[in-house]
């Protein structure tokens, strides 16, 4: 990715602020709802840009360890999914589940961090 600033993350932030500060106060009904949805979607993109790289690296390292092979994240996840389906990972269950839980936790942290804290 080029290093020009504003970076992609800074541009997304600017768009999110634009929606929050300038669009949201001036719309209502469905459009207001969809503006909130859009703001949330951009927040996911921002969190992914900030934390996604490190998460990918950690996930890939765990997958290498589990599968004893190398590849990109897509290939490695495909390999793990196939191995789970065929039963090939049945003897490494605890390790697989731990990996999957860590991965899911990372994904939640990007998609909806509030999911992990109860409201009320």
């Amino acid at each position: 990715m080029p290093t020009d600033r504003p970076t992609a993350a800074e541009l997304v932030e600017a768009v999110r602020e634009f929606l929050t500060d300038h669009v949201a106060p001036n719309v209502e009904g469905q459009l207001a709802f969809h503006t909130r949805v859009a703001v949330n979607a951009l927040a996911i993109v921002e969190r992914t840009m900030a934390q996604g790289g490190a998460m990918d690296d950690a996930e890939l390292a765990r997958l290498r360890e589990l599968l004893g092979q190398d590849g990109d994240l897509g290939e490695m996840n495909g390999a793990l999914a196939r191995a789970i389906r065929s039963g090939a990972m049945d003897n490494d269950r605890a390790a697989v589940l731990e990996h999957l839980r860590l991965t899911a936790e990372d994904k939640i942290a990007l998609a909806n961090p509030r999911y992990l804290t109860p409201r009320g």
Partner: peptide
């Protein structure tokens, strides 16, 4: 803070 300025920034 301005979306316009941010966007112009990238026209560099």
């Amino acid at each position: 803070r301005s979306i316009e300025y941010a966007a112009i920034g990238r026209r560099a």
